[in-house]
């Protein structure tokens, strides 16, 4: 290979390295910019009062308390609906069906397709099935159920993955003791996989919290405190959208809500991290190994 040397200095290598670090620096700057903007602006309005007050003047002033409650409702509904389905799917994929057979293949394919569907399409589906056909209207319930469909593949895949790793380690050991498949699954694999399952749940939670397009036309716009799951409720992400595009002068409060959302997401992932560590320590025992 020909080299370009000036006084024993490899010029081409230097230029390429320079370009590569330059591009990386640009990318890092691009990634940091929005984060820093959110923190800089958000900190100006974020306070306990902001979290505990109701929005006033279309959100320009006041806080986001009812919006946080609606968000919580939507996310809880979606988890409650998606978790049993995802558990069933994961169990059938790891223990129920032969992994090479056609039922497992169809199940896996349907998850893959579901994971690729753009969120606005889920919105269309939720609007026509839950809001119109099932007559739930624009409500927390309808929004949550639509989100459940959206987070199902994320949840099912991570559940199946953690169950499978637990199965590899303990399936044969359990079966060799004459235990039935379901008791090995229930009493060994699920406890062993629990940290992974929790991590999967939180991953799904963050996806649900971050989602906006689905909720735009399923859970509605109302910024009042919801009284039941059949009430319309505005999620934090929809609130941010509304403030930044439809409400002149709402930008600062939009940043406040965005910062609250980011902190919530960070808190969640920190919790799961700590939870995972704690459970692993508890399972593997904290005494040091001795021969």
């Amino acid at each position: 290979m020909r080299r370009f040397h000036v006084f024993g200095f490899d010029v081409r290598d230097f230029v390429w390295t320079f370009v590569m670090y330059g591009l990386t620096l640009t990318a890092v700057a691009m990634l940091l910019w929005p984060l820093l903007t959110v923190f800089g602006n958000g900190l100006q309005v974020l306070s306990w009062d902001f979290l505990l007050a109701s929005p006033e003047d279309a959100g320009r002033s006041g806080g986001i308390a009812p919006i946080l409650v609606s968000t919580l409702g939507i996310v809880l509904v979606s988890l409650t609906a998606a978790l049993p389905l995802a558990f069933g799917v994961a169990v059938m994929l790891t223990e129920g069906f032969n992994p090479a057979g056609w039922p497992a293949t169809i199940l896996r394919c349907s998850l893959d397709i579901l994971a690729g569907i753009p969120s606005v399409v889920f919105g269309l589906f939720g609007l026509s099935l839950f809001c119109r056909q099932l007559e739930l209207g624009y409500s927390i319930l309808a929004g949550g159920l639509t989100l459940a469909c959206m987070i199902l593949p994320t949840l099912a895949r991570s559940l199946a993955f953690s169950l499978e790793s637990a199965g590899v380690a303990h399936r044969a050991g359990g079966a060799a003791l004459g235990l039935s498949k379901q008791s090995v699954l229930w009493h060994v694999m699920v406890p062993v996989a629990l940290p992974g399952i929790c991590a999967g749940v939180v991953l799904a939670l963050t996806r649900a919290l971050a989602e906006t397009a689905v909720l735009l036309f399923t859970s509605g716009y109302s910024d009042r405190m919801p009284e039941s799951v059949l009430d319309s409720g505005r999620s934090v992400s929809v609130h941010i959208y509304d403030l930044s595009t439809n409400v002149p002068g709402g930008t600062l409060n939009a940043y406040g809500s965005a910062l609250a959302l980011l902190l919530l997401l960070a808190l969640l992932s920190f919790t799961v991290h700590a939870l995972t560590r704690w459970m692993q320590r508890r399972m593997t025992g904290n005494t040091t190994r001795s021969l």
Binding site: M283, T284, G285, T287, R289, L291
Partner: peptide, 10 residues
């Protein structure tokens, strides 16, 4: 009542 994983391999 301590964890089985804390035992040595043997």
């Amino acid at each position: 009542d301590s964890s089985a994983i804390a035992l040595s391999g043997g």
